[in-house]
Computed example of a mutant assay.
Amino acid sequence: MTDSLSSRWTERVVVRDGVRLSCRDWGGSGPDVLLLHGLAGHAGEWDATALALRDAGYRVLALDQRGHGSSERRPADVSRAAYVADVVAVVRELGLHRPVLVGQSLGGHTALLTAAAHPGLPAALVLVEAGPGGSNPGVQAAIGDWFAAWPVPFPSREAAVAYLGGGKRPVGEGWADGLDTRGDGLWPRFDADVMVRALDENATRAFWDEWTAITCPTLAVLGQGEQGGIIGDEEYAEMARLRPGLYGVGVPGTGHDVHLERPDVLHALVTGFLGRPVRRAARRAFPCLGAHSNS
């Protein structure tokens, strides 16, 4: 995050059941948008998108979800229900009116579950590399091993960018922005065991019932590069079958971190989707970006 961007948002804090939740409030006077990062991420990942959406006429906030960033680092409850309740608390406490929920990865999953449990809350839903998924018993061990392999503390920002980006500098920059600078180097602003616990439910079940309970217009943005994203063709096909109005777009040349790799494209997709009548948005795509169509 650059100094020029940090001066353009203010911190807003909501406390729910003793858990501190920190938001970046970018201001704006139009329809409300709430941005939700993924596992081990932070609100700053959305800076470019937040600024573009605000300048396009939206009021924008980005939440550091519990266990992450400037929010409570070690909350006792990291259930899916707790994350959903946090979103509801932020919406109510900060006076958001039927916000558009935009979430990436586990943040998208939180947005999905919020829309299912509180159908009157969001005006629309944007899922970036997120879906109902399926039980994945090995996900926690894999994530735990990944965190254990991080060579922390990183000796420099450049080292962190190189390691965390996997060859993609925008991704590395986004992850590095979430690190805490200490005297001996750069450290994560989360605890690995908390992140692993946050996946307890995702490891044991899918969320298709919640998916079919969603009633608001929904845009799914998928990575579509050599490495691809985490939403496979079969999962997307089932998402589209169960919700025929789903509008899905694959972004060529990207992976799981679409919001970091191509924030300009994501901005265009979101504003284009929100600016169209619902029926038209559900049926049309951006052909030049490689659309997934269910009609």
Rank of each mutant, 00 (worst) to 15 (best):
G18Q: 04
A240C: 07
R280Y: 03
L61E: 05
P153E: 00
T254K: 13
G166N: 00
P151K: 03
D86Y: 04
L164E: 09
N202L: 14
G103N: 07
G272N: 07
C23H: 10
H256Q: 04
D64R: 09
S6H: 13
D32I: 10
P99Q: 02
A268Q: 11
S6F: 07
L186P: 12
Q224Y: 04
D64Y: 11
E173I: 06
T10L: 04
A198I: 14
M1T: 12
A124I: 15
G166R: 02
R20F: 13
A116S: 12
D25F: 08
R262C: 10
G57K: 13
P132Q: 04
I143C: 09
A56G: 11
D64N: 06
R241T: 15
P263N: 11
S295H: 15
L269C: 12
G178T: 10
G275W: 14
A124T: 15
V102R: 04
A81N: 07
R59D: 03
A43H: 07
D177V: 05
T114S: 00
A159W: 03
A282S: 14
F207R: 08
F154I: 01
H42E: 13
C288Y: 06
V194P: 12
G69C: 13
L113E: 00
T215G: 10
L127V: 06
L260M: 14
P263R: 08
T49Q: 13
D264C: 01
A240W: 06
T254L: 05
H118K: 12
D145A: 15
P99C: 00
W9M: 09
A52D: 12
A116V: 09
T110R: 03
K168M: 08
R169F: 03
L179S: 08
G27C: 14
P277E: 01
G290E: 00
V249M: 05
P151I: 05
R197L: 03
G174H: 15
R276A: 15
P31N: 08
T181I: 13
S6P: 06
E93K: 14
V90P: 00
M195Y: 04
A203M: 05
L96K: 10
V90I: 14
V60L: 00
N202M: 13
M1K: 06
V33T: 12
V194C: 05
G134W: 11
P263A: 08
L21P: 04
G67I: 07
R80G: 02
G223H: 07
A85M: 09
A76Q: 13
D233R: 15
L127F: 00
E234P: 07
L246Y: 01
A176M: 05
S79Q: 11
R66C: 03
E261M: 10
V87H: 03
S71N: 05
V13E: 06
A56Y: 10
Q104S: 14
T2A: 09
D32F: 10
I231K: 00
G272A: 02
G172K: 01
E201D: 11
A111Q: 09
V139H: 11
E201M: 08
D200A: 15
V152M: 09
R24W: 14
A117E: 15
